[in-house]
Simulated scan of single mutants.
Amino acid sequence: MTTRRASNDRESALIDATLTCIAREGISAATVRNIAGYAGVTNGLIRFYFKSKDGILRAAYQSFLEHLFEAAHGAIDGSYLSAAERLERYLLANLSPPIVTSQSLLLWANFLPLAHRDEAMADIRRHWYARTTEAFRDLIHEALAEHGLTPDDNELRRLSVAVNGLIDGLWIEGALSAESLDVQEFQAIGLDAASRLLGVPVSRTAAS
């Protein structure tokens, strides 16, 4: 158990070093040698855990998208919340750090070309996009049901894609303007826009 934990910790440290390297220097600089320098280890140790540069880049992309998903999903833990409150918290989490940061945007932009060229990277992107859209679908379905609305599956899919796209656009805008951003105003804009898309209030601000 101790050996396994140490191995997992070492893998996580190598992945963190990869993400730091990419955020600071770009994806083209993420060579095994350069990543090893950031991690303070030998090239051989990286190849021991990940076999190749492609292996560690795929692991880093998986970790990055999983971290963003969990940061938002963790905000809706707790059965005591109403459906509208869960949707509001999920939206707010997606419009807050650690999701809305310049580093997250830099990493996303650097990984994007690989996610279109490399099928394994594309599979990772599709998986986490599907998880996020599914989360929005379930939350929207529950929130609409509280208002007596029962859209069919096609309408739910349309709404979940629309809200996810809205949040993605605001995420880019927020990350680009992070230094001058009024976070509360930014979040209020997002909640108001989501309320208009869904046709029901998703927060006390939107309802007023």
Rank of each mutant, 00 (worst) to 15 (best):
R125G: 02
A75I: 00
L14G: 03
T3S: 13
D168F: 14
S12K: 14
S177P: 07
E11M: 15
A122Y: 00
L91S: 13
D192M: 06
V161T: 12
F69C: 05
I140R: 10
G40T: 03
R157S: 15
R58T: 02
A6L: 14
N8Q: 13
A178K: 03
A17T: 00
L45D: 04
N110V: 10
A120C: 07
A178N: 03
L57D: 02
R125D: 06
T101L: 03
F186R: 04
A145T: 01
D138Q: 14
A143D: 00
S104T: 15
N110P: 07
L68I: 11
G169A: 00
H73R: 14
L14K: 07
G44E: 05
V41F: 05
G78A: 13
Y90N: 03
H127E: 02
A135R: 14
G74N: 08
L166Q: 02
E155N: 10
N8W: 08
E70H: 12
D16T: 09
L81N: 08
A120W: 08
R137Y: 09
R24K: 15
S96T: 05
G78H: 12
G199F: 03
I15A: 11
A178L: 05
L197P: 02
A188T: 01
T132H: 12
E134N: 14
S160G: 11
R131L: 11
F69I: 12
D192K: 11
T3I: 13
I35V: 09
L112T: 10
G37N: 01
L81Q: 11
V100E: 01
D9G: 08
G174S: 04
F64Y: 11
H67Q: 12
E85I: 10
A175H: 04
A29F: 06
W171H: 13
A72G: 14
A145W: 02
A143V: 02
N94V: 01
Y49K: 05
I15Q: 09
K53V: 10
E11A: 11
H147M: 07
L144M: 07
T3G: 11
A175P: 06
Q184V: 05
G190A: 11
V100T: 03
D153Q: 09
D192Q: 09
I15V: 15
L159K: 04
L106K: 14
D118L: 03
S7K: 15
S63E: 12
A135P: 03
D192W: 04
D77S: 15
L114T: 13
A84D: 10
D152Q: 00
G169H: 00
L57V: 04
R126D: 08
H67M: 14
I140F: 07
L112N: 11
V183T: 08
L107F: 06
L68P: 01
I35Q: 08
A36T: 02
L198A: 06
Q187C: 00
R196C: 04
R58I: 04
R33C: 01
E155C: 07
A178W: 03
A122I: 05
C21S: 00
A83Q: 07
L87W: 11
L92Q: 11
L57K: 02
I167R: 05
V32Q: 00
N164Y: 15
A84G: 04
R131I: 07
Y61F: 15
N8G: 07
R24Y: 04
L68K: 10
R5C: 09
L191Q: 00
P201H: 07
A71P: 08
P201N: 01
F48D: 09
